[in-house]
Write a protein that binds this DNA or RNA. Structure first.
Lengths: 168, 168
DNA sequence: TAAATCACTTGTGTAATGCAAGTATTATTT
DNA sequence: AAATAATACTTGCATTACACAAGTGATTTA
């Protein structure tokens, strides 16, 4: 295999590689929206609870596409929209997502926050903590996502209207 | 359990919680130094390959202590130094570290970088990817760290001399 | 006891992120 | 058909995180 410097990274450490590649404030949140919530369009990402700014979202989607973690393709019927999907490279992050969720769920600070989630979410989070077979859980999620599905089905938010300018 | 708002977080999502809590450019690198390399002092962290700036390191150590991920205690014999150790809350991140390492190791961009690591490192990275029993690997690491050890033994870097000011 | 080490702080510059407003294109409503 | 609305952005500016260089005081070593 032809090796090629540090590619602008601070070191060759795999922990550092992950931190530098996906350790910003938004990349994993966007991938979560796709993998767990089945969101696929710019507008759907914008409507997430975390309220990403429009310019940041545009930049992160461009970055994730460059990194090969998501793919972008035109919407079949609506020419205004593009569809963002997670690639195999992005799906490879599922084990990390599961451990991140399990860590948060075991963290007292998270536990003592208010939670507004559905039963479906609560059950999944609990499963990441309690399962005796994490590999199976991870495989299940990967299979669902490979088939074009997502972990929590049928719950994308409707859009809010925007105030209109009066005509001249 | 008494719940208590979002504690300044953007949402109640466990993925977002992890991103906001440890998703900066340095927290996980410092914890890696403790858990994997057995580093314990400010100076040892400074000498890591990633070359963290002195002020950033001071800030991150303070933050990690506040979050309860590391503990700080005076050095037994050298009054200039403090010893930083990983707490149980920090040890709980080991499964995430293992999956991060496995993800990077399976990522082509990382694979085609130059690697200067030791055989010990290479074997560990390979094990995260190839093991049939990830739970065992994780338990092994946690046990070592709980006993005050680290994954890669006996390899902390010596310090470099600093140019001296002449006396008046 | 001078020099070196150590764990920082301070000052300043740059990069990432955040907010509000605007724009071009396409879709929908009247 | 024309107006309105929706969608996916961009632009300009403010703020926060991180980066670099140079110090400082306490302690240890030569």
């Amino acid at each position: 295999m032809r090796r090629n410097g540090l590619k602008g990274r601070r070191s060759d450490c795999p922990v550092n590689f992950a931190v530098e590649t996906i350790g910003d404030k938004w990349s994993l949140v966007i991938l979560r929206d796709i993998i767990f919530w089945g969101k696929r369009t710019y507008g759907e990402f914008l409507r997430s609870d975390e309220k990403i700014a429009t310019n940041i979202l545009a930049g992160r989607l461009e970055y994730l596409e460059e990194e090969g973690l998501v793919s972008k393709s035109p919407h079949q019927t609506d020419k205004r929209k593009d569809i963002y999907m997670v690639t195999e490279k992005g799906i490879a992050l599922v084990p990390m997502f599961v451990e991140m969720i399990a860590w948060s769920a075991r963290n007292e600070t998270w536990q003592t926050m208010d939670h507004a989630g559905t039963n479906q979410q609560r059950r999944f989070v609990e499963r990441t903590v309690k399962t005796k077979n994490k590999a199976k859980l991870i495989e299940d999620v990967i299979e669902i996502v490979r088939r074009g599905g997502c972990v929590f089905e049928g719950v994308t938010q409707p859009s809010n209207p925007r105030p209109s300018r009066k005509r001249s």
